[in-house]
């Protein structure tokens, strides 16, 4: 019976496990938002200082790398679109192609993947090592809710900083594309950018920003929940860190696809 039932059993176990994980993450989201809004009423206030510190780590410290990557992506898109569109003699369409693809997709996606690698993993590692060394237990026995102290500030900071970083990435990527493509299109970079601005609608930019807010929730919840569920010492922390990054990036890409589908119908 074993050869037949064992795969079924492990499939069942994995399914239950996955659902439990999603449920746990949802509970974390609910609790974090609850503490952020009502925490001060029950003696568990969300500290502004903690939020600002997280905002610095998640956002300010990532400025340089986001700028660099966004610029590179912009140049890359310029190269690809000029090559592809010139086959049809449609080089003038490069501007609109870059503008729409950056604001709707690439700005949010690249920023989210970068932040997942930087901050999602850091959250999982930090909270994971804290659970292993009983620091999370110590917080709880001191009457400091671990979710309020560790998860809520990260969630709020991420919800603010990821959209901000996305807007920055949008702007820098378009600048990168302008710098590369304007000579090929025989316009000045300034003219390229003003043309971009006239072609873009607010909806394009909002689409990217809305996505980035969803990505922010995903990255935080996956980082925090894998961190809290670490077991098995230092090795467990390492595994949780990897898991947080891989899971975050997978979810980001899948959710991005789903969003794009519904927003562009």
């Amino acid at each position: 019976m074993n050869t037949l039932t064992r795969p079924l059993e492990s499939l069942g176990r994995a399914t239950v496990h996955a659902f439990a994980g999603v449920g746990y993450a949802a509970a974390l989201l609910g609790e974090s938002l609850y503490f952020a809004v009502f925490g001060w009423r029950i003696g568990q206030p969300l500290r502004l200082r903690a939020v600002l510190e997280q905002m610095r780590q998640i956002g300010v410290d990532a400025l340089a790398i986001v700028t660099l990557l966004a610029l590179t992506i912009g140049v890359m898109l310029g190269i690809q679109f000029i090559a592809a569109l010139s086959e049809f003699g449609a080089q003038s369409q490069v501007v609109v192609a870059v503008a729409k693809s950056v604001t709707r997709e690439f700005g949010a996606l690249i920023t989210a993947i970068l932040v997942a690698g930087r901050s999602g993993s850091a959250l999982a590692a930090r909270i994971g090592s804290m659970s292993v060394s009983q620091e999370v237990d110590a917080l709880a026995t001191m009457g400091i809710e671990p979710v309020r102290y560790l998860a809520a500030p990260a969630l709020i900071a991420m919800l603010v900083m990821l959209p901000v970083l996305t807007i920055l990435a949008d702007a820098v990527a378009i600048l990168g594309a302008a710098l590369y493509s304007s000579p090929a299109l025989n316009v000045t970079p300034a003219a390229y950018i003003s043309q971009t601005l006239s072609l873009l609608s607010a909806g394009d930019v909002w689409q990217g920003i809305a996505k980035s807010a969803v990505f922010a929730v995903l990255i935080t919840l996956i980082g925090v929940s894998t961190g809290f569920s670490v077991a098995g010492g230092a090795e467990g922390v390492g595994r949780a860190t990897t898991r947080a990054v891989v899971l975050s990036i997978c979810w980001i890409i899948v959710v991005d696809m789903i969003f794009s589908f519904f927003l562009n119908r």
């Binding site: 029950i42 003696g43 568990q44 930090r126 090592s129 804290m130 060394s133 009983q134 620091e135 237990d137 110590a138 917080l139 026995t141 001191m142 009457g143």
Partner: peptide
């Protein structure tokens, strides 16, 4: 309730085996 539990926790102290000081 949360409030009662918090009131209790303010009146107890715990020293864990490994110390559990926040390393940060």
């Amino acid at each position: 309730s949360e409030r009662e539990l918090l009131a209790v926790r303010r009146q107890i102290g715990v020293s864990f085996q490994g110390g559990a000081l926040l390393t940060s």
